[in-house]
Amino acid sequence: MDELLPPLLNGTALGALLLLAALGLTLTFGQMGVINMAHGEFIMAGAFVAYVTQQVIPSSDLSIPLALPLAFVVAGFLGLLLEVTIIQWMYRRPLDTLLATVGVALILQQAALQIFPAQGVPVEKPSWLDGQIDVLGYEWPLRQVFTIVLAAACVAALAAWLKYSSFGRRIRATVQNRDLAETSGVATRSVDRITFFVGSGLAGVAGVAASLIGGTNSQMGVQYIIPAFLVVVAGGIGQIAGTVIAALAVGIAMTFFAYWTSGSLAQVLAFVLVVIFLQIRPQGLFTVRTRGLA
């Protein structure tokens, strides 16, 4: 038990970070079907917002809580800009969207390189994240606990927004039947834009959490984008509960594999497992059931 606990707790924290990275994709990819390869760079943008906020407000105790909503807004506007300028013309052309957003990702990486040092910049964690809590004798870093709490808060807020708000209803209606939504009085183009804003904004929040763990650099988005897509697909496209379970499973599996092998091999093994799982269950963990599918 003593040996299993640290990888379990560390893996849960890694899973929470993956979940934060993937959560926005459950909206933009899962709900809207857009393969946005620049989502990783929105995570990077969020991380740089944390850094810049810290330059303006040196106290990290204040700057990090402030950076969270700021990163949401900045990444959200980047997403909105992407939707309005490029994606709206490509909604039924997934290959074109994929290629165009890879291009946007490269442009954003280069822009980050022009503005910030190539080796990256550090983000100082707030003093209230110094220290550990004792879990059955294991000193669990508070920084990891924060990632889990932040991920849980974002999941709860997103799920409640989709389920109970009038805007959530409009998103779900537009996703299910765009023509019917339009003829029910829903302005579906506004729904597209706001959905993209929120999905991209969540990537910004993920970026702040990621910056506290590994700092920031122009390439950091690349390491999150593929795992995030895999987590969303394995969870069942558009299903938040599935994304949560898949992210935690991948995070915990990767950490255990890392304990037994090495970091890079652990990533390979974890994603081989996801690919095998998708061969057996291509629809992912959760599927939508209707009378037609029952």
């Binding site: 019917l180 339009e182 009085g185």
Partner: peptide
């Protein structure tokens, strides 16, 4: 279409269409 609905047009499509997951 959503603007036409605002102005007072309503449309019931063929095939008993509803938002099935709602």
């Amino acid at each position: 279409p959503n603007r036409r609905v605002q102005r007072g047009m309503a449309y019931v499509a063929q095939g008993q269409q509803s938002f099935e997951q709602l």
